[in-house]
Computed example of a mutant assay.
Amino acid sequence: MQLNGVLYAPAGSVTLNGNDTVNGAVVGQTVVINGSNTVTWNQSVVETVPVQQPGLIP
């Protein structure tokens, strides 16, 4: 899967298996990443999502 956007499941779990590419963000109560996945934070993509913007936890 290749996604330019946000996987948004704040009360659910998100699992990426295999060789997925996300250019944006992944939000979930739990996030599991297995395999050769790439997740790249892209502020310009995230700003297009019509929900309260997620913040990064330091």
Rank of each mutant, 00 (worst) to 15 (best):
N17Y: 10
N17D: 15
N17E: 13
N17F: 07
N17Q: 13
G18I: 05
N19I: 09
N19E: 12
N19C: 04
N19K: 14
N19D: 13
N19T: 14
D20G: 09
D20P: 06
D20Q: 02
D20H: 01
T21E: 11
T21R: 12
V22E: 03
V22A: 03
V22L: 02
V22I: 15
V22D: 07
N23R: 12
N23F: 09
N23E: 10
N23V: 11
N23W: 02
N23Y: 11
G24E: 02
G24Y: 02
G24S: 04
G24Q: 03
A25T: 05
A25G: 14
A25V: 07
V26N: 09
V26A: 07
V26I: 11
V26C: 09
V26M: 08
V26F: 09
V27D: 06
V27H: 07
V27N: 07
V27R: 01
V27K: 03
G28C: 06
G28R: 01
Q29T: 03
T30M: 10
T30C: 01
T30V: 03
V31E: 05
V31A: 06
V31S: 03
V31Y: 05
V32D: 13
V32F: 09
V32Q: 12
I33W: 00
I33P: 04
I33D: 00
I33Q: 09
I33H: 00
I33E: 00
I33N: 10
N34L: 07
N34Y: 07
N34R: 03
G35I: 06
G35A: 06
G35N: 04
S36T: 13
S36Y: 00
S36P: 02
S36G: 13
S36W: 00
N37F: 02
N37Y: 01
N37A: 08
T38N: 12
T38F: 01
T38D: 08
T38I: 13
V39S: 01
V39C: 06
V39Q: 05
T40L: 12
T40N: 11
T40V: 13
T40S: 13
T40C: 02
T40A: 12
T40R: 13
W41A: 09
W41E: 09
W41F: 11
W41H: 10
W41P: 05
N42M: 08
N42Y: 05
Q43S: 14
Q43R: 11
Q43P: 08
S44A: 15
S44V: 08
S44T: 14
S44F: 02
S44L: 11
V45H: 05
V45N: 11
V46M: 07
V46F: 09
V46L: 06
E47W: 09
E47Q: 15
E47T: 12
E47N: 15
E47H: 10
T48I: 01
T48F: 00
T48Y: 00
T48Q: 15
T48L: 15
V49W: 10
V49I: 15
V49A: 13
V49M: 15
V49T: 11
V49D: 02
